[in-house]
Amino acid sequence: MQSRPAVHLAIPVDDLDAARRFYGDILGLDRGRSSDHWIDWDLYGHQLVTHRVAGEITAQGLSEVDGHRVPVPHFGLLLRTADFHVLADRLRTAGVEFVIEPYLRFPGRPAEQWTMFLRDPAGNALEFKAFADETQVFTR
């Protein structure tokens, strides 16, 4: 059986303990290999690596999308709808502040999707979304 391709993403953090709490305890990701300078995370089958860096980590900018100010750059993941809502509830319970609260975009249209934006403790912007019909991800 051939495995599906997976993404490898490395992001900067200024505090590995804060990253450990956020990605492990709050997001519920399984931890992989680690050192004093980095931690591997299983992001739903994709490899996310939090690398400790010296200095300030700053956001780059905002882009207008559907009347919301979307942080750029950001990274994220497409989830199944049920997983999206479980994660949104988990984040609310943990008291995570959303940049953009979970909401439904394009209701009743081919690209109907749930989306939410948040930041990790280092300020990295994350987006999670779920399409009503996963075959419509790239529909124009």
Results as ranks from 00 to 15, higher is better:
L77Q: 12
E134R: 15
A125Q: 01
V49H: 07
L79I: 15
L87E: 06
P107T: 10
T81E: 07
G95R: 07
H37C: 11
P110S: 07
V70P: 02
Q47M: 15
M1L: 10
P71Q: 12
V72T: 15
S35L: 00
A111W: 09
D66S: 15
E127R: 11
V65S: 07
L43N: 08
A111K: 11
I100D: 04
Y23T: 10
H37W: 14
R69I: 03
A54R: 12
L79Q: 04
L78V: 15
Y44K: 07
E112S: 02
V72L: 10
V7T: 14
R33Q: 12
R140D: 14
S63P: 10
A88T: 11
G24A: 00
A88Y: 09
T58E: 08
R31H: 00
R31I: 00
N124G: 07
G28A: 04
K129E: 07
R69N: 05
A88V: 14
R20D: 05
L104R: 08
P102N: 03
D66R: 14
G45S: 05
D15S: 03
I11D: 10
L87F: 03
D89M: 01
S63F: 15
I57S: 03
T115Q: 05
P5M: 14
L79C: 10
M116Y: 04
T93Y: 07
L27E: 03
D17F: 14
A82P: 00
